[in-house]
Nucleic acid binder design. Structure first.
Lengths: 338, 338
DNA sequence: TTGAAAGCGCTAACAT
DNA sequence: ATGTTAGCGCTTTCAA
């Protein structure tokens, strides 16, 4: 890369001091009009660009926010990031994005990288509710605000933005039961994600409320991806467990489950409901018969920024938890009221 | 944020010079063993982290690569980024990702931001084949290598990684015609994307080869998104153009088209083929009856890195163009050999 | 094997 | 309104 032009070069060429150049470039008021325009014109002509590294280094402020997400397959996190970027950009922040790929080690590496890059805050959806707790704590101790969203961790005293997982899962179960399902199996998430437990509890409690038998056999714990859903469904089929509805942890695993059934040429009867929490736009559109609970991704992004700004103002401020209402979208032949 | 500990602090505390600390921290050989371990232990205890800004500033090397993509809805770019990140990470590079959202102005802003951040190279899939050409040129003139992939621009003398759009589109048309379709309509892409023209040409040439009538009416130019596909389909239906196959520019627009037909309760006959270029994993799985041309995303990522490294070594080296073979995946009731 | 010193590009306090 | 100067954290000569 060619050596970029600096304020020193400009100062030298125009016979002014570099402070004047610096002031002109930053639109400080106390620069004579002609001098300023001379400087700006010259800078533009020579293609001057601020050296962010020198500036950040000097100012000890980076204006960079780190975003850590476990995956980018579903559109949820993509939409989240898109919105976050546009909000933060308007506030003069840039972002570094890291995709953990559901791997705590990658997450850890990326967090350390972000620390080196002196990010001023981190928005994170954790990929594991135990493994990196020490790192999270360390970063917070160093004064970097961490805001958790979606996949939060209860035992951490940090600002959080979550959805009403339990309640909405419970409603979904109620809806399934009320529409006549008696054999609802649960394709649960992995134990290392906190949301898994909340949804499992909702599954169990809803059955209990309606005096339906709760059977541990009817729950299979799986991962969050398409392949995980396929495998879980395979396991269910092997065990020959009858079902008239499948309550899935994620939309991807739901799609995997359905795909597996299709591969078996098992035609899914109209009255077998497949539903899941955390719907994505894409599959909702593609997949007209799957009831989903859709997370309010824009709202979540907005609150994340709000909580982040609070912490940036005052690191010792309170750690608010915002719980957002999710929306159940029924796309099922046997519709009931929400 | 608390003031992070620096090598000066360490040097002062341990009574050595900061050069020694710097050397120890960077594993330079000429540091006495005991001193080194003392320094490392102290650094670890105090939670020392390199200040990347000071280092980059001093070394004039950032080890950051910018990635610019037009969207992240389809999994293509997500997969691309994931793979790029893992390869570059292994080579000691980090990445800044920007999503243009199909908007050349946003793309421009982000490119300028990347310039300020002194990225050492940029991988870009352009969202418009004209609008930002000046910016691209300027960055290249400044010595920042730009590697174009997927949505490339012919008139720019830069390294490129593209797929054999024309050929594969032609094959797809041949396949449709050979399987008996006579009324193939084309839901084309927008004119500002270069690939649009290649696919349109393939559409026309294939019809010509088989002496089928080519009718401008049978092409509707649309955007790349789901909604664009819906609108285009609506327009086709309004014009009452009969069809037995739809050749779509993107998978998203294909999904939109199909969704629109479904909303009309227009049941798509088995022998109406919907097919598209640039398939994503998700919808291929969800959507068993859509023939797609799948882009070799991993290979594309690998070549991008290869071309980037070449340019990084020698900015004046040749501008290679790599053309990758795409794969037609027939998911149609009336199968034929590829 | 170590230390002293210069300097990367920029900003801000201070002086003029 | 402008210039002078010091210094941010680090690496890298050069000297010891």
């Amino acid at each position: 890369m060619k050596n970029p032009i600096t304020i020193n070069d400009i100062a030298f060429e125009l016979g002014v001091s570099k402070s004047t150049v610096s002031r002109a470039l930053r639109n400080e008021p106390n620069v004579k009009k002609e001098v300023r325009s001379k400087i700006l014109a010259f800078a533009k002509e020579k293609g001057y660009t601020r050296n962010e590294y020198a500036i950040n280094f000097r100012n000890k402020s980076t204006k960079i926010i780190g975003i850590v997400v476990p995956e980018m397959i579903t559109s949820f996190y993509v939409n989240f990031i898109t919105r976050i970027q546009s909000i933060l950009y308007a506030k003069g922040f840039h972002t570094i994005i890291s995709i953990s790929n559901e791997n705590p080690d990658i997450e850890k590496d990326n967090l350390l990288m972000m620390e080196s890059y002196r990010v001023e805050g981190i928005l994170i959806s954790a990929c594991h509710n135990k493994k990196n707790i020490d790192i999270y704590r360390r970063l917070i101790d160093k004064g970097i605000p961490l805001i958790f969203f979606d996949r939060t961790i209860d035992e951490l005293a940090v600002p959080k933005v979550k959805i009403d997982d339990y309640i909405k899962s419970f409603f979904m179960m109620e809806y399934l039961i009320r529409s006549g399902r008696k054999q609802i199996i649960h394709l649960a998430g992995p134990s290392y994600i906190q949301n898994t437990l909340e949804r499992k509890n909702a599954y169990r409690d809803a059955l209990e409320k309606f005096h339906l038998p709760f059977n541990q056999e009817n729950i299979i714990e799986s991962g969050v991806n398409f392949e995980d859903g396929e495998k879980a469904m395979e396991a269910f089929m092997k065990k020959q467990i009858p079902f008239d509805a499948i309550f899935c942890f994620t939309e991807m695993s739901a799609l995997g489950a359905k795909s597996f059934l299709q591969k078996l040429h098992y035609s899914i009867p109209e009255d077998v409901a497949i539903c899941c929490v955390s719907g994505t736009v894409l599959s909702s559109l593609v997949y007209p018969t799957m009831t989903v609970i859709e997370q309010p991704v824009e709202l979540m992004a907005d609150y994340c920024v709000e909580l982040l700004m609070e912490k940036l103002d005052n690191m010792d401020g309170p750690n608010r938890t915002v719980v957002l209402e999710a929306k159940m979208i029924i796309r099922d032949s046997t519709k009931v009221d929400e």
